[in-house]
Simulated assay, not measured.
Amino acid sequence: MSDMTPAVGQHAPDGPDGPDDATGTTRRLLLRVGSVLALFVAAGAAGGVLWERLWQAPTGLAYDGRWYLEPAGPDFSFEGIALFVLIAFPLGLVLAVLVGLWRGHETVTVVAVLVSAAVAAVVMYAVGSALGPPDPQALAAGQPDYTPLPGDLGLTAPDRGRVRWHSTALVVLPAGAMAGLVGSYLLGNWGFARRPRG
């Protein structure tokens, strides 16, 4: 019977709960979080481009140094917001379903998806509004009366003094992502997920 204890000065191999396994698990978790964040940010940027491409800028007029939507009305004011919601919710839903297929470490995945979806919503807004026309209220200040100016792409009504991104529409992408992730986990428990072989 041989002695299994290592001699003095020798290093015992790390077992399943040893430092090598902990480092490998941490590395895999960081890779998962980084991959989820990269996927959501890239999709958020693509969503912002799509948002700006599908949106039709409303027209308005400069009058007395201010910009007024012409014709006025909520259907023109909130068209950009509605379009943002129509793109962001399904985008978050699909991305989260894809991430939900990556089984294991569900708690880390939920937190990563929630944070990444919030970042993606901000990226989507930033890209879309950067590609759209500039703020017409700022442009109207130096224009003669009745000069036509296009509206800008934002998440609030185009009123003077409004902050363009102060809107609950930014929570739509994270809400879609959470719905998709919960759905993928529930459907996975009903047998739609990949089953282990053997």
Rank of each mutant, 00 (worst) to 15 (best):
L30Y: 09
L31V: 04
L31C: 11
R32C: 15
S35F: 15
S35C: 09
S35V: 11
L37G: 11
A38W: 13
A38F: 12
L39N: 03
L39F: 12
F40G: 00
F40K: 07
F40A: 03
V41F: 01
V41A: 05
A42Y: 03
A42L: 15
A43C: 04
A43R: 02
A45V: 01
A45R: 03
A46F: 05
A46M: 11
G47L: 03
G47Y: 01
W51S: 08
W51P: 10
E52H: 11
R53L: 10
R53M: 12
R53T: 10
L54E: 04
W55D: 02
Q56G: 15
Q56T: 12
Q56V: 14
Q56C: 09
A57H: 14
P58K: 00
T59D: 11
T59Y: 09
T59W: 09
G60M: 01
G60T: 05
G60K: 06
G60H: 05
L61F: 11
L61S: 14
A62N: 00
A62M: 01
A62P: 02
Y63G: 04
Y63I: 10
Y63T: 05
G65E: 15
G65Y: 10
R66M: 13
W67M: 12
W67C: 10
Y68Q: 15
L69C: 02
L69H: 04
E70P: 04
P71N: 01
A72N: 13
A72L: 13
A72S: 08
G73T: 10
G73P: 11
D75R: 11
F76N: 06
F76V: 01
S77P: 11
S77A: 15
E79D: 14
E79V: 06
G80W: 03
G80T: 06
G80Q: 03
I81L: 14
I81F: 13
I81P: 05
I81M: 15
A82E: 09
F84W: 09
F84C: 02
V85N: 08
V85Y: 08
A88L: 15
A88R: 01
A88N: 00
A88G: 04
A88S: 06
P90S: 10
G92R: 02
L95T: 07
L95P: 08
A96F: 04
A96W: 00
A96Q: 02
A96R: 07
L98V: 05
V99W: 10
